[in-house]
Amino acid sequence: MAPARRSLGRDAAALLGLAVALSACGGEGGGGGGQSEASRVTVFAASSLTQAFEAMAEELEEDSPGTSIRFNFGSSSDLATQLEQGARADVYASADEANMIRVMDADLVEGEPSVFVKNKLEIIVSAGNPEGIRSLEDLENSELVLSLCNEECPAGKYAAEALDKAGVNVEPDSLETEVKAVVTRLQVGEADAGIVYASDVASAEGEVEGVPIPAADNVIATYPIAQLTDAESAAGEFVDFALSKRGRAILEEHGFLVP
């Protein structure tokens, strides 16, 4: 028993020392250290915007060296909850209007939100479309492993609307909580088909394919963006960039529709 006692105290001290040393050595590299005159804009954005927004931030940071952008990507509703509970952010971009309204109701939006991008639904299938899926009707085949989002997430809600409009009854084999999880299922071969945004198909190009859904059945998601109250002065730059010609071009490259 005695040796255990001695080594416990020593190891606990070593452990704490290690933690302190690690946090100290990472201080500068982490980006949290220097808060000089540079403006750091915090953007809370729906996870479907991940790649497009990262590309935008890269260009914006190059154009205006004093500005740095950091992101908090998550589901629109989680982000809205964080904002309602006082998390500080300068810009919020939601994948639906309902969550933007929540943030507006909490008096956190400066001015008016603008719809900066739209997204249509597509059927997602494995590369080469081995099951030969051509339409929503083809998803009725119960042999198919079908992956959808649950209706709490906007993509799931829209998919249900689209299926309803097409008069198609499906039996999904998985209900994901997030649209990217459907993409992942297709990428790892766990599902034969799913319904996701066109932008999601574009983001996994090569591994998956999109089958268009006709406009009559399709549901278009609208993404609003807004500057938040007490935002960093450079917050407007990011919003403006997202609405600019260049910003729209980047969004289009990533499979979004621009209004």
Binding site: G31, T50, N72, A87
Partner: peptide
């Protein structure tokens, strides 16, 4: 704590975020 790279993005959260892309 959020998903802020360099500040609150831990390894499991980084795995999740990487899975998105």
């Amino acid at each position: 704590a959020g998903n802020l790279p360099g500040e609150t993005q831990t390894m499991p959260i980084a795995v999740y975020t990487a899975l998105l892309r």
